Simulated assay, not measured.
Amino acid sequence: MNIGLLFIWLTHKPYQQQMNQEPLLNISVIIPVRNEASHIINLLKDIENQTYAKEKFEVIVADDDSIDNTLALVKDFQKVTSMRLIINSLPPKENNASPKKRAIHSSIQLAHGDLIVTTDGDCRVGHKWLETIAHFQSEKKAYLISSPVTFINDASNSIGNFWQKIQTIEFSSLIGSGACAMLIGKPNMCNGANLAYLKSVFHEVGGFSGNENLASGDDEFLMHKIASRFPDKVCFFKSQDAIVETESHTSFKSFYYQRKRWASKWKHYNNPFTTALAVFIFTANFSLIGAVTLYAFRLLDGTNLLIIFLLKFSAELLFLILVLSFLRKKNLIWLIPFVQLIYPSYVTFFGLAAQGKNEYIWKGRKLQ
């Protein structure tokens, strides 16, 4: 499998913008937020500095009952910004199973743009972000575009920063493998921190209906619905200008809840390929743990164990080097072998954890 990913990544070159004469779509950037006072202004300033013409896009901040001063900060920024900024202040709602879907759906009802672009309140974007997405959409006539996401890492050498670096490598493997699946027309994952889709297609496939009671999946379930109807219109945008950076987790607890939430989604997929792939990945990593166990009980010799690990890790190492280089994280390449050693246990742990009761803590709320 890793050899296949390596081949796909190498054979699909980064996007080169063409001299496109087609008209570019108006964009509505939707940012669902809750308690993002420490991040939201940085993101809004990034968007304000876009190379895309300001008359071609608007920004909708959907505040989901923040209990910090997020809403006040956005209102103050709204008074001084030159871009069109809409505040969608959501009223409190009890038993809200999926607050992020609610925030996005209600914002789409306010959107004037034909292309919806979603990101998160703790993200940072480059100045060509919207321009390159708009040109790619126009050239490919894509209905849904998944673009790359990575983590923000500071330059310190603290233990906390080491934890961030480990997360960045692990997350890069997910972004890279998801990109490859989409590049060959078999989309299995994407990330709502950097997602674009036609507003008309969102309505045509029924939006989030059918999984509105699940806490997660504002991105992937929608992607699968669009891909099932329009399989050749779902694209990965391999461009460094489109990279979005987001905050990594500062605690294992928050990391645990997010990864458990992600791992639990495969049970709800209607796509047999995606479900089979999830089972295969779990089985492949669990088999490595089994091989080590057999070696410990002298049921497998060291030579065969070494061959098994070399077959898995060699192609995987090259693939991760390429993905990290693309994401501008070359300084983390030296940590890949360490992540490779712990990854089988990580996949097995979350694969099993996701089979239990699926409760998560998100932005101070308990969700299922």
Score class of each variant (00 low, 15 high):
Val74Met: 15
Val74Ala: 15
Val74Lys: 15
Val74Arg: 15
Val74Tyr: 15
Lys75Phe: 11
Lys75Ala: 14
Lys75Cys: 13
Lys75Glu: 14
Lys75Asn: 14
Asp76Phe: 03
Asp76Ala: 09
Asp76Gly: 10
Asp76Ile: 12
Phe77Pro: 03
Phe77Leu: 09
Gln78Trp: 03
Gln78Ala: 09
Gln78Arg: 08
Lys79Cys: 02
Lys79Ile: 10
Lys79Pro: 00
Lys79Gly: 02
Val80Ser: 12
Val80Lys: 11
Val80Gln: 12
Val80Cys: 10
Thr81His: 02
Thr81Asn: 05
Thr81Val: 06
Thr81Gln: 02
Ser82Trp: 03
Ser82Lys: 11
Ser82Thr: 09
Met83Lys: 08
Met83His: 07
Met83Ser: 05
Met83Tyr: 03
Met83Glu: 01
Arg84Thr: 14
Arg84Ser: 14
Arg84Phe: 10
Arg84Tyr: 09
Arg84Ala: 13
Leu85Trp: 01
Leu85Ala: 06
Leu85Asn: 04
Leu85Gly: 05
Leu85Cys: 11
Ile86Leu: 06
Ile86Thr: 06
Ile86Asn: 01
Ile86Met: 04
Ile87Glu: 03
Ile87Thr: 13
Ile87Pro: 01
Ile87Val: 14
Ile87Met: 10
Asn88Tyr: 02
Asn88Ile: 08
Asn88Thr: 05
Asn88Trp: 04
Ser89Pro: 00
Ser89Asn: 13
Ser89Lys: 11
Leu90Gln: 01
Leu90Glu: 00
Leu90Lys: 03
Leu90Asn: 00
Leu90Asp: 01
Leu90His: 02
Pro91Lys: 09
Pro92Tyr: 09
Pro92Lys: 13
Pro92Arg: 13
Pro92Met: 12
Pro92Cys: 11
Pro92Leu: 12
Pro92Asn: 13
Lys93Gly: 12
Lys93Val: 15
Lys93Met: 15
Lys93Tyr: 13
Lys93Trp: 09
Glu94Val: 14
Glu94Arg: 13
Glu94Pro: 00
Asn95Lys: 13
Asn95Ala: 14
Asn95Thr: 08
Ala97Arg: 04
Ala97Ser: 08
Ala97Glu: 05
Ala97Asp: 08
Ala97Pro: 11
Ser98Phe: 01
Ser98Leu: 07
Ser98Asp: 06
Ser98Trp: 01
Pro99Asn: 06
Pro99Cys: 10
Pro99Ile: 08
Pro99Ala: 11
Pro99Lys: 04
Lys100Trp: 00
Lys100Tyr: 00
Lys100His: 00
Lys100Pro: 00
Lys100Val: 07
Lys101Gly: 03
Lys101Arg: 07
Lys101Asn: 02
Arg102Glu: 06
Ala103Pro: 14
Ala103His: 04
Ala103Arg: 03
Ala103Met: 05
Ile104His: 04
Ile104Arg: 07
Ile104Thr: 05
Ile104Phe: 06
His105Thr: 14
His105Trp: 03
Ser106Cys: 07
Ser107Ile: 14
Ser107Asn: 13
Ile108Glu: 02
Ile108Gly: 07
Ile108Trp: 00
Ile108Thr: 02
Gln109Glu: 08
Gln109Trp: 03
Gln109Cys: 02
